[in-house]
Design a binder for these strands. Structure first.
Lengths: 346, 346
DNA sequence: CTGAAAGCGCTTACAG
DNA sequence: CTGAAAGCGCTTACAG
């Protein structure tokens, strides 16, 4: 392999000092147009590639952003990551990624690595408490942005997250607009800020029409199909009449659908269902099956990248940015009826 | 923020030379156990973090691997990436990622960046011809591994890919084992090596029982639901009897299902269907809907990472490694019947 | 505008 | 086993 061509090669070939060559190639410093031109041409001719490592070393800036993604590096974090990487790439910033599906100990090691590599910023994706608290503890020497985390208040860093309140509002207004008046909310643990925000949004929509939530409060469980089944059964057993369900995610929605179908109810004729996540997007060979809220995680990622870039540039982005989702209307709220004679393919 | 503690701080605090301190912390060079101990303790006490940038600069090794993932950075590449990143992280190697959803020009820029950052190796995920040819053209100065690319022969680099031939064999044997004798193959363009390999595998399975492929050859189209519909209609129109379909991917399978159902055929009673991809895994609330081949892309990723690590270590990994997939059996081949009275949720 | 020089923090022959 | 010194490739005050 050919010997690497270095800045000093370019300088001597162009007949200038290495300092001048550096100035010609860089942006800083006064330099005559003629000299710059000559150096540039020489660099081109020699196919000079500045050594990024040396440059980073001397400037202390690595043009690199670190990313820690929680173990859900799979389904939920991925769109966020992709959105962020795309945006960062556009700005010539590389993304240094570690798997954060890790013990606290490994996590700490990764954070130290990231610090040692002098990343210009840190993007933390996902809601792992370990991640947030560790990062705090380490007082990371570069701007940090948290993505896909519901703001908890205790955190002073910049947070970009889906707007749960808006999602609840969208779901509520959609159902009410369709004439539904008795809406129940089956969701995950009340401990989650995202859960609370969506519930609050729904309550606001109901309040706009002076409607109560069926049962007076959400039913809290887990994000799972089985909880959806159980919750719907509890709802049926309560004897309370209802004509719509807002589910905390699509899994819960599908579980609820199953339980209601078994009980002989028709969807959406008897009960309309709205999910959250839009995980099951392309599921029906003949139209969208489940009405859901698309959280636009890709946008969450790109907005997070922008916030991080701004922080790195010394600006002060807003502490919290909530990305509104989008209602995706499917047959579970507007029909035709699901189940029965319908042939539904995944 | 506290001034950064450097190796020379540690050295003077421990009362040794900076060279000795370096040896104590590193692995190379003779050093007395007692001195090493003292330096180590001092480093610990001062919370010394070696500057990774400086270290990389002087050694020329960055402990970083570059990743270029094609625009399908979404669905198909992602499991591969995750598998690779996990494995690399275990070895303390960070992953430098660029979005390769890019013009040839941008791609080239990314490759130059990666080279300038002196990555220790390069992992290329996806089947973009641009990627492979560009990487060749650049004669990248570090080991390269291609993942999720069907080996084309012309490429001398290391390739890790799903074993398409094995997939065809699995599908064929499964269907034949269920008593099916008249199998058709609806798939994508014959130009794709992956397509060819799966077809060859199916033909081998058929040959084991001296069975012909229905129509004598696969029907070639695109990876899409709509092609699945069209292809199945062509198959029906041909008048050839058939009792099973092997689809080039799950989308084609779903399209075929739709067309056959419309024609009044029952699945799997009249026609069994096997897909490929296992993209629709969790689709049925009551069992797996579609029999498919899981390509185990996560394993493709981790094996690719291992091959890259081996190359970096100077070993010579095998030029091609094919990862066998797994048959996932669902109701589209073993029943009970899909469609009709069944309630199928996404 | 240009050049000589110092320095970024570490590693590694080379002498002692 | 340990230390003084050179050097990795670049940037940036500091003088001219």
């Amino acid at each position: 392999m050919a010997k690497k061509v270095t800045l000093s090669d370019v300088a001597s070939a162009a007949g200038v000092s290495i300092a001048t060559a550096s100035r010609a190639l860089g942006s800083a410093g006064r330099i005559s147009a003629e000299t710059r031109q000559r150096v540039l041409a020489t660099a081109e001719r020699l196919d000079f590639q500045p050594d990024a490592l040396a440059k980073s070393f001397v400037t202390g800036k690595s043009a690199t952003v670190g990313v820690l993604a929680e173990q859900a590096i799979g389904l939920y974090s991925m769109p966020v990551l992709i959105g962020a990487i795309e945006r960062l790439s556009e700005h010539g910033i590389a993304t240094l990624m570690y798997d954060a599906r890790a013990t606290s100990h490994e996590l700490l090691a990764h954070l130290r690595q990231l610090r040692a590599r002098r990343v210009d910023g840190l993007l933390i994706v996902g809601d792992t408490p370990d991640l947030t608290s560790l990062a705090d503890a380490l007082d990371f020497p570069a701007p940090m942005v948290f993505a896909d985390v519901e703001p908890s208040g205790r955190n002073s860093s910049v947070v970009i997250a889906p707007d749960g309140h808006h999602a609840g509002l969208l779901a509520g207004r959609h159902l009410i607009g369709l004439g539904r008046r008795r809406i129940a909310h089956l969701t995950a643990s009340a401990a989650g800020p995202a859960v609370q925000r969506r519930a609050a949004g729904m309550l606001e929509a109901l309040a706009e029409h002076e409607l109560p939530l069926v049962l007076g409060a959400p039913l809290h469980g887990t994000y799972s199909r089985s909880w959806g089944v159980v919750a719907a059964e509890q709802l049926l057993a309560s004897g309370e009449p209802f004509d719509a369900i807002f589910a905390g995610d699509d899994e819960i929605a599908i579980g609820a659908y199953t339980a209601l179908s078994r009980a002989g109810l028709r969807i959406p004729d008897d009960v309309a269902i709205v999910g959250y996540d839009n995980q099951h997007r392309p599921v029906h060979h003949d139209g969208i099956w489940l009405t859901s809220i698309e959280p636009r995680l890709h946008t969450v990622g790109s907005r997070a990248a922008e916030a991080l870039l701004a922080s790195i540039a010394g600006e002060q982005p807003p502490a919290v940015e909530l990305v509104p989702g989008e209602l995706v209307v499917g047959r579970s709220t507007i029909g035709p009826t699901l189940g029965a004679y319908e042939q539904i393919a995944p």
